[in-house]
Design a protein around this nucleic acid. Structure first.
Length: 581
DNA sequence: TCTCAAATAT
DNA sequence: CATATTTGAG
């Protein structure tokens, strides 16, 4: 965000219009000013003509530099840009695109190239249209302006209503949040706005109204809304800029604060996973779009825009028509506990100590925008439940695998191993376990930062399958037990993993013997003298039994010597040879 | 506020 | 039908 502004002395092409402007704008799309850039003069003329027939005001350019110049000079003059991407002028077009950061830019091309499209979108293009441009497509471009205004409007409205508070509504806007009111306000306005435009465009098809741009859009933020659902999530639409809100005491923390949305985004780009963290309960397709757009795009308002961009307009149902906004605002969000989110959760829990982990604190520590205490509480409930079920077993298993201790991290308090004395299997949380093997027990927040893994990507977890439902064998670990030393690659095989059920029994068998003897050793140490004495005694008393481990039969010489010492010089004739053999 | 348990949604 | 998450009560 900030980056953008600093980067290039952006010709304040920003916010060409706001919701207010739109409200004032009587016959809205009419008079929309469009900057058209197409190197092909004919094409340019053609498009221009079409646009003008729709009462748009068009400034056509065939030269990219001219266009850019125009942009920088009279930036305020355009509401939207349409830029042609031909195979020959790729670079130029992109340059323009990059330059027109704050101007909704629609890329057009006669060639269909996914990667180019991707690139455009990634660079912040609002849409990518393929030639020939249908009238419908062109007619719809005004929607980008609305989206733009919409997003900006949220900012300003929020600001106005609550200058000190978050400028931007939390990504996840829940009904209970205080922000509700102001958001609501903006929603109402927007809704009103939409109504008015519906009147104007009465004749167009329903899908023309609100449904997004004509081209199926990528959800840059990695989520798709239900196809027939509202395309925008008025209450959670704006990209959170950590620095941008919450100027108060929390500001520092906020640097690592993260919205659910952002978490998702990060995951998306880093692990190629697309997980929606929160989605509308009602939204139809939970379809995950496999789009991994480069981070660059984040700079622009792309995240917002893209999110705003709806799915397939053709599917837009009539239900959109009335109060889609209102409905959206009411919609309950479902928190999807992605591995990332869960990771945060677990981290928080561990920091607090499993014992003292309560929803409110966890929530604080997690620093996830929009997440509510309820959400956390719920998850905590499940978390505890799970541990209750799984840990005992796990402990049992570990009880037989003392050596595993070597790898367990101090933090994994609930992975602690059983004490020597058997005790009913309770969740470790209910009683701090004393460690037999001398491993540090810290259910308390380790003072030092993340010692057991990368903050955003603890290694102990297989990203894709953090949920026990997916890989039962991984449950315990998946539930956040840092069982392995930090590693660079979250996917590599971890020793601990092998000891989980999922790894099968082989490893169990493999280690049993060693573990047992290990145990024996330890016990021996503990009872050192007793044990040794006993062993010796047994050996002496019952020479016919195999000698205890570690004891060797005396040498003939030493025996003879001892006998002699005791005054027995004559060895009994009875099979002296077999006596010790 | 926290927890537990029932209700719901996927 | 099972599981995950929300909702509601104590």
């Amino acid at each position: 965000m900030h980056k953008r502004k600093d980067d290039k002395a952006e010709p304040a092409a920003d916010m060409v219009c706001t919701t207010d402007d739109l409200l004032e704008w009587k016959d809205f799309p009419k008079g929309l000013r469009i900057l058209l850039l197409d190197e092909d003069i004919h094409s340019a003329a053609e498009i221009k003509l079409k646009l003008e027939q729709m009462d748009y005001i068009v400034s056509a350019f065939c030269d990219e530099n001219e266009a850019m110049e125009a942009l920088s000079n009279k930036c305020e003059s355009y509401h939207v840009a349409i830029v042609e991407v031909s195979t020959g002028n790729n670079l130029g077009s992109f340059k323009f695109l990059e330059n027109a950061k704050d101007l909704p830019t629609i890329m057009i091309s006669s060639t269909h190239c996914v990667s180019t499209t991707m690139k455009c979108i990634a660079l912040g293009a609002a849409e990518f249209l393929q030639k020939p441009l249908s009238e419908e497509k062109l007619r719809n471009i005004w929607q980008h302006v609305v989206h733009k205004a919409f997003n900006a409007g949220e900012h300003s409205l929020s600001k106005m209503l609550n200058p000190t508070k978050e400028t931007i509504p939390p990504v996840l806007q829940l009904p209970v949040e205080k922000d509700e009111s102001k958001v609501q306000t903006s929603l109402v306005e927007i809704e009103d706005l939409t109504r008015r435009h519906e009147l104007h465009h009465d004749l167009s098809t329903a899908s023309d109204k609100f449904p997004a741009p004509s081209t199926p859009q990528l959800k840059q933020s990695g989520r798709l809304l239900g196809e027939s659902e509202c395309q925008e999530q008025p209450n959670c639409p704006v990209e959170k800029d950590p620095m941008d809100h919450d100027g108060d005491a929390k500001s520092v923390e906020n640097s690592c604060n993260i919205s659910i949305e952002n978490i998702t985004a990060k995951v998306d780009s880093s692990s190629m996973l697309v997980n929606d963290s929160i989605k509308e309960v009602g939204s139809t397709s939970g379809s995950k779009s496999p789009n991994h757009l480069r981070p660059e795009q984040k700079s622009k308002d792309s995240i917002i825009n893209s999110k705003v961009e709806a799915g397939n307009p053709k599917k837009a149902s009539t239900s959109n028509q009335n109060s889609y906004v209102t409905r959206a605002s009411r919609k309950k969000m479902k928190v999807d506990w992605t591995q990332d989110l869960h990771k945060r959760f677990v981290k928080a829990v561990e920091q607090l100590g499993v014992d003292q982990a309560i929803p409110s604190r966890i929530l604080e520590l997690m620093k996830v925008e929009g997440l509510t205490r309820h959400n956390v509480a719920s998850h905590l409930q499940k978390y505890r439940l799970n541990r209750r079920h799984i840990l005992p077993k796990e402990e049992d298993r570990r009880w037989h695998h003392p050596k595993d201790n070597r790898h367990s991290t101090p933090r994994s308090n609930y992975q602690q191993h059983k004490p020597i004395m058997a005790y009913p299997s309770y969740p470790p949380s209910s009683h701090p376990i004393c460690h037999v093997w001398g491993h540090p027990i810290s259910h308390l927040p380790p003072p030092t930062a993340q010692t057991w893994g990368h903050p955003s990507f603890p290694a102990w977890q297989t990203p894709e399958n953090w949920q026990w439902k997916t890989f039962h064998g991984m449950h315990v670990d998946a539930w956040g037990c840092p069982v392995m030393p930090p590693s660079q690659n979250p996917n590599f095989t971890i020793p601990q993993m092998q000891n989980n059920a999922s790894a099968g029994y082989q490893s169990l068998l493999d280690t049993t013997f060693e573990d047992s003897s290990r145990m024996a050793m330890i016990e021996s140490n503990q009872l050192a003298e007793e044990v040794i004495d006993k062993a010796v005694k047994e050996a002496v008393d019952m020479p016919w039994l195999p000698l205890p481990l570690g004891l060797k039969p005396p040498s003939t010489e030493s025996v003879l010597f001892e006998l002699q010492r005791q005054g027995i010089s004559i060895i009994p004739p009875q099979n002296p040879n077999t006596m010790w053999q």
